[in-house]
Design a protein around this nucleic acid. Structure first.
Lengths: 201, 201
DNA sequence: TCAAATTCTTATCTTTTGTTAACGTTTTCA
DNA sequence: TGAAAACGTTAACAAAAGATAAGAATTTGA
């Protein structure tokens, strides 16, 4: 895959959000960077400001916290999704999470500085505001469901729901990451799986 | 408090997000409604589409789910905050939560239809995109912390964190709502409080 | 290729939470 | 104002989750 292919994939996905004309597209792409994040390398690190947003052309990443020396995986992003330590990006505060490539990952990124320049450029401002709004709203929808699951469901119910809706996570992530994502320990998830199997019998 | 006072409060808070000139402000306010939500009345209901966003001038609301006939409180909003069953508002799908006034509450609201009209009005589009972006981003920041707390902290740690940062919730909400908000039962929170008291001694 | 690391399960024990019910206190509102 | 509802604590028991460790199977990577 060359850089033109990557850019076309990004442009295709972007149509969902914003319709750039050719002049705008040229301006916009001047602020984009194509980058490769090798497996196990970091897009964001705890304690450091994450000043950029990425779009995953190919690959996958996981978000994790470190608590008492242990890694706790909280989220994943895959192809055609955006990734950032969003709060850090928006506020300029140090990131609370690491974001790590789970495989060699091809990204299109832009920095906060570039985004601010575009937001201040009358040629792009309107469409960048819209772009930012729609990305944030997409995240919001996803987060709202996630919080509701923690409030109203037991770990077992959350896992059953993931079985119905989380094909990509289930197929691509090891079980102990999934356990963290559900808010429980790997040992506990193993027991829940056993319980479910015995119920089905 | 009359409607002019309410509007001024809203305008003052809005400055954080968007700077309207007089002509724009007049257009914008034509799409706003001032409403009073009596105690225990609903701003949104489970199963019904929530097609509006509100700004709380005075009062407070709680969000709750109903599961197995039980109310589970998931969130609160107070003065100078926005409220909506956001996913329902954005997607047009039925709301998963109720939003109920905890006291007589004075709101400034706009509907999805009004917002869409403003987004399509060249005189307002740019600033409304910005307004929408900044609201969504503010929510995002708050949700990110909330999810991180569920992933990385025990219920006791979440309560201790609330003691440090959640003055308004602690002062204005009964304990069994707070328990739900933390993802545990009221009985369990009562025990956690006892445990903490005994540790302090 | 092969030793090391990772992953998942299982077992044991401890801790915490959920459930239900009872009780006294406070608040609500007709 | 007075009965009903709501609220917080406590107790007892059951269910679930956490911590730790061991062991087998798989994957990784030098």
């Amino acid at each position: 895959m060359n850089s033109f292919t990557a850019l076309n994939i990004f442009r295709e996905q972007l149509k969902k959000y914003v319709d750039f004309n050719e002049a705008e597209w040229i301006l916009f792409t001047q602020h984009l960077t194509l980058s490769n994040l090798k497996k196990k390398h970091y897009f964001a690190e705890q304690g450091k400001v994450c000043d950029k947003v990425g779009f995953i052309v190919k690959g996958a990443v996981r978000y994790f916290h470190v608590k008492d020396g242990e890694e706790i995986t909280g989220y994943f992003s895959f192809e055609n999704e955006y990734l950032s330590s969003y709060k850090s990006y928006l506020t300029g505060q140090p990131s609370l999470t690491y974001i790590q490539a789970l495989e060699d990952t091809k990204l299109i990124t832009f920095t906060k500085k570039d985004m601010d320049q575009m937001l201040n450029n009358p040629m792009l401002a309107y469409k960048m505001e819209r772009f930012g709004r729609l990305i944030a709203e997409d995240y919001l929808i996803c987060y709202e469901d996630r919080i509701a699951a923690f409030i109203t469901q037991t770990p077992e119910e959350r896992y059953l729901q993931l079985l119905n809706t989380g094909r990509e996570i289930l197929q691509r992530m090891p079980q102990h990451y999934i356990a963290n994502y559900l808010g429980i320990t790997p040992v506990s998830l193993s027991r829940i799986r056993k319980r479910i199997l015995e119920t089905v019998k």
